[in-house]
Every structure is written in structure tokens, then in C-alpha cells.
């Protein structure tokens, strides 16, 4: 009950933040140098053509009127029409979000599991070779440019070894996959399309690996720190001295302590991963949300930029909210 009230209060607090984001994006995108209309018309268009196109997208009206129209649309779930493609932004979003969420969620889950394993291992062998190796690798992982890492993985996994498909899409078009959610792995499973499932999985390996390496380091560091704290605690040492079985020590003490800090960190990492997808999708021609948002920004496609910024902010704050709730459920000391 208390959790529900907490969630409700936090959701209410989100409204002014998101409204601020909406207003700010609306204004800033119009301050950007460049003109969305000129970018669709081409060099030979006359001033009259431009005026007609401007009227078609409502850009001839006062700023105030445009904002009210936009806000009214948002309240009914209408994100407007893309100036570049002429299709509703909501429809484009529906196609673009699935692939990106698939990528990010798989990467974050793998990274979290890997971090728990590596972090606890590292802490139990503190200041020995295994520990130093993990620490050095996490420093390198923290310093690696993700887009370059993606390219190196392509060089090794595709160009040299030929184990993985070329970085040009998410699934082999010959498998005839019917898109449902846009998350190809899920779609293939839902439609029972075996070849598409295999193809989608093969296409996922390199981009997921890129993201995992990019976000793993801070997670490992946090798990290692909390595990070290537990190892030095009197409670743990007493438990170990009493001869509690290894499994109980590992599950009941070390893993549990690591889990407490993990949700908020996973949320932070989720945000980083959303930022990274812009680069990683570009490398692998993923055609997801990141590439779509980037194109919108480059062509000054106002409705697309507004929608993508709002979606990113929404994801970010919601993920942090979920993290806080999970944290409270894992740790009875937390009062919310």
C-alpha cells in the first residue's frame, strides 16, 4: 500500500518535469539553425512552395498557437506528423522502439548478471591476480569508445572469422519475418518462425556484446565494493566462523548485499545505454529508435525531435522510479 502511494506521488511529480521537457524541447528545436521545410523541398523550390509546405505543417502559425496544437495532440496521444516522411510520428515510433528496447534490455540484463558474478568473484579474491585482472579490464571497458568497439567486433566477427552476419540490419529479409512488436527475436518466437529466430539472434550478438562491454564496468565496480563491505563485516565473519555452508554465504550474504545497490545503478546504466544506442545502432544499421532520433535531429524534423526527446526523458524517469521501487522491496531498511 505504501509502495502504491509512493508510486502515485512520484508519478504526479513527473508531470512538471515532463512538462518542462516538452516546453524546452519545443522552443529549443525551433532555435536550432536550419529549416526543416528547406531540407525536404530541395534547392529549386520557390518561396511560394516553401510557404505552402510551411502551411501544410502548421509552421506558419504563431509560436503560441503551434505549441497549443502540439500540447492538445499530446494529450490525445498524437505526436504530430513527421516533416521528412509525412507519416504520423506515433506510427514511426511503434516500429522504432521495439528493436532498440530489445537491444538495450538484453544488454542490461546480461551486464547485470555478469557484473554480479564477476564482482563477487573479484571481491573474494581481493588484491590477488584474478581481482586485479577484473579491475584492469573494467578500467579499459570504461575507457573504450563504444562505436569503435562495435567496428572492431565487426572486423573480427564478420570480416575475419565470418561467424556473424554483416552489420546491415536486424534479421535476414529472406526469412520472411512478420513484424509485430519490432523486437525481432520476440516476433520470430511469437510467429514460430525458426529461421528468423536464428537470424535475429545471430544479428543481435555483436551489438549486444558492444553495449555489454560498454556498460559493464561501473556495475562490476559497485558489486565488488558492496561485496567487500560484507566480507569485512562482523556479521559475515561470524557466519563464516560458524561454518555456514558456502552456498548460504554466497547467496544469503554476498549476492543479497550486491543486489541492494544494483537497481539504481542498473537504471543509470540503462540511461547510458539509451545514449549509446545512437552510436551502436549507427554502426550496425539497426534502424531503431536511436538512428531515427538522430536523423530527426539532423534534418530538424521538429515533431520527431520533440517526440524522441520526450520518450527518452520518460524512459529515463520511469526506469529510475522502477529502480527505487525494486530497491525498497529488496531492502527493508528503505522507507518510501
Amino acid at each position: 500500500m505504501r509502495i502504491l502511494r509512493f508510486v502515485a506521488r512520484r508519478l504526479l511529480q513527473l508531470i512538471p518535469v515532463l512538462l518542462g521537457v516538452v516546453v524546452l524541447t519545443f522552443l529549443l528545436v525551433r532555435v536550432l539553425p536550419g529549416d526543416p521545410i528547406r531540407s525536404i523541398l530541395g534547392p529549386n523550390a520557390t518561396e511560394a512552395d516553401a510557404a505552402a509546405a510551411r502551411a501544410r505543417y502548421g509552421l506558419d502559425q504563431s509560436l503560441w498557437q503551434q505549441f497549443l496544437d502540439y500540447l492538445r495532440g499530446l494529450l490525445t496521444g498524437d505526436f504530430g506528423t513527421s516533416i521528412q516522411s509525412g507519416t504520423p510520428v506515433g506510427d514511426e515510433l511503434a516500429v522504432r522502439l521495439g528493436p532498440t528496447f530489445e537491444l538495450v534490455i538484453i544488454a542490461v540484463v546480461i551486464a547485470v548478471l555478469l557484473a554480479i558474478w564477476l564482482g563477487i568473484r573479484s571481491a573474494r579474491r581481493a588484491d590477488r591476480l584474478g581481482d586485479h585482472t577484473v579491475r584492469v579490464f573494467s578500467l579499459i571497458g570504461n575507457s573504450i569508445p563504444e562505436f569503435w568497439l562495435g567496428l572492431v567486433l565487426v572486423l573480427v566477427g564478420y570480416a575475419a572469422l565470418g561467424w556473424f552476419p554483416a552489420p546491415s540490419g536486424r534479421v535476414d529479409p529472406d526469412t520472411g519475418l512478420t513484424p509485430l512488436t519490432g523486437a525481432d527475436l520476440l516476433d520470430a518466437a511469437l510467429t514460430g518462425n525458426g529461421p528468423a529466430l536464428a537470424s535475429a539472434a545471430a544479428h543481435l550478438v555483436l551489438p549486444v556484446l558492444t553495449l555489454v562491454i560498454g556498460i559493464l564496468a561501473p556495475l562490476v565496480r559497485s558489486v565488488r565494493a558492496s561485496a567487500l563491505e560484507v566480507l569485512h563485516s562482523e556479521a559475515y565473519q561470524a557466519a563464516a566462523a560458524h561454518g555456514l555452508p558456502e552456498r548460504t554465504l554466497l547467496r544469503g550474504y554476498l549476492t543479497r548485499a550486491a543486489l541492494v545497490r544494483l537497481p539504481s545503478l542498473a537504471a543509470l546504466v540503462f540511461g547510458t545505454a539509451i545514449g549509446s544506442t545512437v552510436l551502436v545502432e549507427y554502426v550496425f544499421s539497426w534502424q531503431g529508435f536511436g538512428q531515427w532520433a538522430l536523423r530527426g535531429l539532423l534534418y530538424r524534423d521538429y515533431p520527431v525531435v520533440q517526440a524522441s526527446v520526450l520518450i527518452i526523458a520518460l524512459c529515463y524517469v520511469l526506469v529510475f522510479l522502477i529502480a527505487d521501487v525494486v530497491h525498497a522491496m529488496l531492502d527493508p531498511r528503505v522507507r518510501i
Partner: peptide, 21 residues
Amino acid sequence: VDIFQAFPTFILALAVAALLG
């Protein structure tokens, strides 16, 4: 500061870079 930190930093950098050139 809160509004700035409501975005992944790279996304923010992208937007500002588009603004400033």
C-alpha cells in the same frame, strides 16, 4: 541542473552540438 540531468549525457551533447554547430 535537474533538467540537464534528466537526459543521458551523450543525448544532451548531441542536441547542444546541433544547436551550437
